[in-house]
Amino acid sequence: MLGRELAAEEHAARRAEGHTEAAGEPLLAFEQVGRRGHIEPFDLSIQRGEVIGMAGLLGSGRTETAEVMFGIKRAHSGRVRDVEGTDGGKGADELHLRGPRDAIAAGFGFAPEDRKTDGIVAELSIRENIILALQARRGWMRPIPRAEQQRLANDYIARLDIRTSGAEKAIGELSGGNQQKVVLARWLAMNPRFLILDEPTRGIDVGAHAEILTLIRELTAKGMAVLVISSELDELIAVSDRVIVLRDRRQVATLVGEEIGLEPVVRAIASADTHTEEAPA
């Protein structure tokens, strides 16, 4: 299967590349963040340039975690600290994520799992879909000039190889993979620090799979942190620096470096009750 080969190749490439200069600097810290009935309180610190993979069965709380992280559902407990640029986390600012707008203001981006209902605005053009988040941040009073919109759209169409006859085509008419690329372009235009991708490769063709994985690697090379939720374990393993495993709405394992592999991940996902490893504090 292509995924398997891809995994090995990708992994090798990542290891060979090593980390860029920005990588490893602390960026964000989620501390005992949780929401009753959705996700047990969890700790997660995020470094620049890192890809965090999130694995688990359907209903294990992956999407719920992403939604709490992006402020779509408010956390009932814990806090989120913005650690970047502060002296080792001392005096760091606490982020209050009361909604997606707060998360976006803090430099987060989120490509949701259900692209059709939560991601794309089907009847709007590719151009409009790409600039939508940027425009929302600027406010309605300051429209992005048309020329700039076109430049951005054409730029991302070329960069992400979005297959379309033009930027004015309605996004709803594109294939799944190309829609996903437009949603990614929307967030890349925002230049986020932390990008959450919920099932970024679901329902798209194999060629686009590889392109999206390559893109994730490129982004992290520039220092962006990416959280990838995926049921495609091969891909998840291939692309991640760290894999977090969820079960029953609880983080049950964290795999780093050489531990990342299909077998350990599957074991963590499926094992009845014995935690492979405690989630780190």
């Binding site: 779509i72 009361r98 997606p100």
Partner: peptide, 8 residues
Amino acid sequence: TPRASALG
């Protein structure tokens, strides 16, 4: 149905 969402 105890469900709250920050989505407008």
